[in-house]
Write a protein that binds this DNA or RNA. Structure first.
Lengths: 220, 220
DNA sequence: TAGATTGTTAATCGATTAACAATC
DNA sequence: TAGATTGTTAATCGATTAACAATC
């Protein structure tokens, strides 16, 4: 029987990623098991929610003892596809781009940068964190010779769609977008946006909301 | 009548931030109005959703003509609190931290970095993008002399809670957390997490999901 | 056995979408 | 006026939480 995998809701995936990080810490402290209730407390979630989340990864706990930390970590890692490695390329070696290249994604998060690309010749033909930076024009050639699963877009919004088009044309299935641009891609390509500004907007709005407004200052 | 402001759902705020960026582009191209329907198409949302979102900011459109772009931009900016400026400090001047300091938040997003702090003396007493970097120990003194609305946490997860505690102690109301750590803070402090790994998890999971599994490979 | 903890089923809550009336 | 577009009310959908049974 051929079966696709269950589409997990984004909030669940985010929480699972949080558990994963927490569990790594517990494992390092030689702790072997934990109950969903205790885990829930640590992250201030509802315990039933934690159990439901874990269930989705195929984990089963034992009444009275809870879950084995090693098993949990493995299950979550498998669920995310982090046991294998995703080959990745990055476009736009600016401040953010270089910071991303320098982060150790490979250790725990299944992401391996094999190259980066930039349209500015001054930034090309160097190594950043041992990752070669080439000119954007070289990408098609490079792509034909390497297995690339993920393209990271760290260019300005104005050129982001162009980069996305190139990625799609070369058959890259996953796009991690750090630009403001709303990328239009065919259905078979997955775009995930990591846009700081949206996160900042939530923070500043919450601050605005928490300010008690003086009489008349709030419009209708 | 004293009234707090409506607590907007996070998804709405994220979408509004998307509109805001799009509208800035339209304005630059001298376009003066747009219908919610057209806007919806550009970002591939439901038009009713767009209208509901805009309503929350107090915007009213005109049947047959739509919304004025200038008005929309202003309304969204006011809604986010971006007309005023939020004074901000950053902790952890590493790769990510410096990238954040170099981004022009001030222009459009109401965020003004007034200083950064690091526990590594080698990184202190320099300027990054004209923003002074001090030693963490100096923060309490600094805080007493400046109005700080937001603290940005860009330190490793292992020291993030410590930084959060310092921020809370100095009465900072908004914390923008880029570390993996789950920060525990009193209710009067708002924490917004901008955790890349969670975003990456969604992308990799979607890729895992889209792979059709061969017989027997998918467990139960 | 008793009690803690899991797992399941049902209820609630909130966000999105659909249907339609109002208006320029 | 007719038609496009807004705004509102109701229906649907999905995610979270509550209640409780199952199990070690």
């Amino acid at each position: 029987m051929i079966s696709g995998k269950v589409k997990a809701p984004a909030p669940v995936i985010r929480r699972l990623s949080t558990y994963h990080h927490l569990l790594m810490g517990l494992r390092q402290r030689q702790i072997q098991r934990i109950s969903s209730t205790a885990l829930a407390e640590m992250v201030e979630y509802n315990p039933v929610q934690v159990r439901k989340d874990l269930q989705l990864t195929g984990l089963v706990g034992k009444p009275k003892t809870g879950f084995l930390i090693d098993e949990m970590e493995d299950a979550i890692r498998r669920f995310m596809g982090w046991e294998a490695e995703f080959g990745a390329v990055l476009f736009g070696v600016g401040n953010l781009g270089s910071a991303l290249l320098r982060y150790p994604w490979r250790e725990e998060h299944g992401l391996r940068f094999i190259a980066a690309f930039d349209s500015d010749p001054a930034r090309c033909n160097i190594l950043v964190n041992n990752i070669p930076v080439y000119h954007t024009d070289y990408f098609a050639t490079f792509s034909a010779e390497h297995e690339i699963h993920i393209g990271v877009v760290a260019v300005p919004a104005s050129t982001a769609q162009k980069v996305a088009d190139i990625l799609v044309k070369e058959g890259i299935k996953g796009i991690w977008n750090f630009s403001h641009a709303h990328l239009k891609t065919p259905a078979h390509a997955t775009v995930e946006n990591a846009i700081f500004t949206q996160s900042l907007a939530i923070l500043t709005r919450r601050l605005v909301e928490s300010q008690v407004t003086s009489p008349g200052k709030e419009h209708s």
